[in-house]
Write a protein that binds this DNA or RNA. Structure first.
Lengths: 256, 256
DNA sequence: ATCTAGTGTTACTTTAGGGGTAACAAATGT
DNA sequence: ACATTTGTTACCCCTAAAGTAACACTAGAT
């Protein structure tokens, strides 16, 4: 009674493959250490009638031990063992699945010209992929220090192997990062600040051009982020051109 | 068409948290690399109407990228990334869950006298636990070399630190294992061979007594295995006595 | 021995999520 | 202008899991 069950724990166990009631019963039993069906029911509010079958299932899975009798007593197996078992089985499944998927997809040609990515994780993932693939030149425009910072490690590595051109909208806000930044023209800065199309406001946060053939633009629409990957060489050359005009003339690198 | 979808792969992906249709759609897209909703539908037989929402969900999860248009094109993200992400999230969940469970259960007192274990895995687990806890003496009866063999490694370690008494029903069948075995009396051998209670046949496969205070008996009922753990010192002393009478008199160790 | 409270089982209802089908508006192509 | 395809919506169906209620059986109490 005093120790109310942690709903977060229940939902975690559900992610590990138990049903809600199974999770509740197991947690109840771990709390009580050793108990009858009724005691578990009273602690967890799982219908008493259900507790019996649940415990049977859990016993068959090896999650608990049984002492026959009236009433029957149950005892939880050490969670470390149980969770360890679940983990091992899951990891086996992971490697097998990956192998099976790889049989289907020889290697990804990354063929197509324009792609839109809608998941936060997918965007970061793709950015890292592009950074990892950059060989010679990397042009980056950023208006969000926080977001850029997430890739600081990768960028520092890249700084050794290829030409890094970092363009930002306000120098001061990026002063904490150990890179040489350039600033865009005021004109450009104002024009990019808040783009509104069809009533929705776009906010360009990051733009990367790698080796003049691959680009990714990240912008937020409302509170959602979205990214567009463009792989057509022509488009990227064009965009390179734009960015070279976007910089304050005095800051343009000569050898570019 | 030619590359029929591997149902094993689908069920694996389901274990990793996708629904059946999500799995099919994803596998279809990985196979096609880049495709429209219709193409995925034709390859996987997932109703076309469903494909759209499925792909939306998968895109939001970051499993694929989108090229807007009519028709909209979809592209699978490298499975290594996706499965890796799923794995990481799962492992996070595992450690969090374990911590939460451990907050509930300080340490398991393993108090109670008699417990029954019904899962194959749970039995082996408990046997190893008992072996690990043995300090001085270990009496083991086995009638199944295959089963005993599973614990060969543990037993070899134990042989150095405590008195190992291995009793078997037929010496020849255990000749492949590097231990000194003793044989039971014919009388006992016959009596234990096939015990029938209430029409069901019990087959005692393994019996362990550790330090005269903890015992586990494993027997098969029909094709199912079951184990009984007994932790009452009295019972175990009694059983030790029985086993000392069970051995051929000539084989009894003097200092026992 | 009888009564009663608690144990264990069974059958039924409800609910939610996933899957399948059909119909339709919008977009595209002829 | 028409036919086809795309993308969306509204349904139905089925199942797994959760919740409910009733009942036979046991064990202890009187």
């Amino acid at each position: 009674m005093f120790s109310q069950i942690n709903p977060q724990l229940i939902s975690n166990l559900e992610k590990l493959g138990l049903t809600e009631n199974e999770a509740k019963a197991y947690v109840g039993l771990v709390s009580l250490r050793e108990a009858t069906a009724r005691e578990i029911h009273e602690l967890t509010n799982v219908p008493r009638a259900k507790v019996y079958e649940l415990l049977k299932v859990l016993a068959k899975k090896g999650y608990l031990e049984v002492r026959q009798g009236t009433p029957t007593y149950f005892r939880a197996v050490d969670p470390k063992q149980i969770i360890g078992k679940i983990k091992d089985e899951f990891l086996d499944c992971v490697t097998e699945t990956l192998n099976q998927l790889n049989e289907l997809s020889y290697e990804l040609p990354k063929s197509s010209p324009v792609w839109c990515i809608q998941s936060e994780w997918g965007i970061k993932n793709r950015i890292r992929e592009i950074l990892a693939g950059a060989k010679e030149e990397l042009i980056i425009f950023s208006s969000s220090p926080e977001y850029l910072q997430e890739f600081e490690a990768e960028l520092q590595k890249l700084a050794k192997t290829c030409r890094l051109i970092l363009i930002v909208n306000e120098l001061e806000r990026f002063s904490s990062m150990p890179f040489k930044f350039r600033e865009v023209t005021k004109e450009f800065k104002d024009s990019i600040n808040n783009i509104v199309i069809d009533g929705t406001q776009y906010n360009e946060e990051l733009f990367i051009i790698a080796d003049g053939k691959e680009s990714i633009g990240v912008h937020s629409v409302g509170n959602k982020r979205e990214a567009v990957v463009i792989r057509m060489p022509i488009v990227c050359y064009m965009q390179k051109l734009i960015y070279s005009k976007v910089l304050e003339p005095s800051l343009i690198k000569k050898d570019q």
